[in-house]
Amino acid sequence: NQASVVANQLIPISTHLTLVMMRSEVVTPVGIPAEDIPRLVSMQVNRAVPLGTTLMPDMVKGYA
């Protein structure tokens, strides 16, 4: 099972991601792979992401 990136807190819209905001967890459905966490740092979310939500490629500007 592959770990995905999950929000560690509420991430407001247009926030630049930091390591503190993300954790890796095995979830269904599978989202952005956990090994991409370093790549996600300083990218922006294009919507509010609630605590515990799996980050999907379409939620992060410039990821997909």
Rank of each mutant, 00 (worst) to 15 (best):
A3Q: 10
M56V: 07
I37W: 03
V5Y: 02
P50H: 07
V5A: 13
S14V: 04
V41Q: 06
P29A: 04
L10R: 12
R39E: 08
S14Y: 15
R39D: 08
D58W: 14
Q9A: 11
M56I: 07
V49K: 00
G31C: 03
V49S: 01
M21W: 03
P57C: 06
M43W: 06
T28Y: 11
N46H: 07
M56K: 10
V20W: 13
T28M: 14
M56Y: 11
N8S: 15
L19V: 07
A7D: 01
L17P: 00
T18V: 06
P12C: 05
M56F: 10
P29V: 05
A34G: 12
V30G: 11
P57Q: 08
A7T: 09
P12D: 07
M21I: 03
L17M: 06
G62I: 04
Y63Q: 03
S14E: 15
Y63P: 04
L51D: 13
V45R: 00
V60N: 02
G52P: 01
M59K: 01
L10V: 12
P33D: 06
L51W: 10
N8M: 07
P29I: 06
V30T: 14
M21R: 00
E25I: 07
R39T: 13
Q44N: 04
D58S: 13
A64Q: 10
A64N: 15
Q44H: 05
P29H: 05
L55K: 01
R23S: 06
M22W: 03
D36K: 11
P12M: 06
G62M: 07
I11N: 00
K61I: 14
L55D: 00
L51C: 08
V5C: 06
M59N: 05
T15V: 08
E25R: 08
T54Q: 03
N46V: 12
V49T: 04
P33S: 10
I13D: 14
Y63S: 03
P33C: 06
L10F: 13
L10I: 11
P57H: 09
L51T: 15
E25P: 01
R39K: 13
V20D: 15
M59C: 05
N46Q: 11
I37E: 00
T15R: 06
V45F: 02
T28Q: 15
G62C: 07
M21L: 04
N46W: 07
I11G: 00
P38V: 07
N8R: 08
A3W: 12
V20E: 13
P33A: 11
T53M: 12
K61G: 08
V30S: 13
A3F: 09
N1L: 15
V5W: 03
G52C: 04
V5G: 02
T54K: 04
T15Y: 11
M43E: 04
H16P: 15
P38I: 11
T18Y: 03
L51P: 11
Q9V: 11
V20M: 13
G31Q: 00
G62K: 09
L17S: 00
G62W: 08
L51R: 14
P12K: 11
K61Y: 13
V20A: 15
H16A: 13
M56Q: 14
Q2E: 12
M21K: 01
T15L: 04
T18W: 03
I37T: 07
Y63E: 04
V26C: 08
Q2P: 12
E35T: 15
A7N: 01
V6F: 02
G31E: 01
G62A: 07
N1R: 08
S24N: 06
L51Q: 13
G62P: 05
R47G: 05
N8T: 13
R23K: 13
A64I: 11
L55H: 01
T18D: 06
L40Y: 02
L19F: 10
L17V: 02
R23T: 08
R23F: 04
I32A: 02
R47D: 07
A34N: 06
V41C: 05
R23W: 04
P12N: 08
I13Q: 15
Q2G: 12
L40G: 00
L51M: 13
I37M: 14
E35K: 10
I32K: 00
P38T: 11
P38K: 09
A34E: 08
L55P: 00
R47M: 10
S4R: 02
G52A: 06
Q9C: 09
P29N: 05
N46D: 11
G62L: 08
T54E: 01
G62V: 04
H16R: 15
G52M: 04
S14H: 15
V60W: 03
T18N: 05
M22V: 07
A34S: 13
M22R: 00
V26W: 11
A7P: 02
L55I: 14
S42R: 13
N1S: 12
V45S: 05
L10H: 12
G31K: 01
P12S: 08
A34Y: 06
Y63R: 03
S24D: 07
K61R: 15
V45D: 01
R23E: 04
A64R: 05
I37A: 14
S42N: 15
P12T: 07
T54R: 03
V60P: 01
Q44R: 10
P50Y: 07
P12I: 04
V6K: 03
V60H: 02
V6C: 06
L17Y: 03
N1M: 14
Q2F: 13
I32C: 05
V27P: 01
T15I: 05
M56N: 05
G52W: 04
T54A: 07
R23N: 07
P12F: 04
K61W: 14
L19Y: 14
E25L: 09
A34Q: 07
M59S: 05
V49Y: 02
M21D: 04
A7Q: 01
I37P: 01
I32P: 00
V5K: 02
V26R: 10
I37F: 02
M22P: 00
R39W: 09
I32G: 01
I13E: 15
M22L: 14
K61A: 15
S42I: 03
M56C: 05
L40M: 06
N8E: 07
P50M: 09
P38S: 13
Y63M: 05
D58M: 10
V45G: 01
L55C: 03
S14R: 11
Y63I: 04
L19H: 10
T53P: 01
P50E: 13
E35P: 08
M22S: 01
L17H: 00
P50K: 10
T53V: 11
I13K: 13
S4Y: 03
V41Y: 03
I37R: 07
S4G: 04
T15C: 06
S24C: 06
P57W: 11
V41T: 05
M56L: 10
Q2A: 14
V41A: 05
N8D: 12
I11H: 01
V20L: 14
L40N: 00
S42G: 15
N1C: 08
K61P: 13
D36F: 10
V20I: 11
V41K: 04
S4D: 03
V5E: 00
V26P: 07
D36I: 05
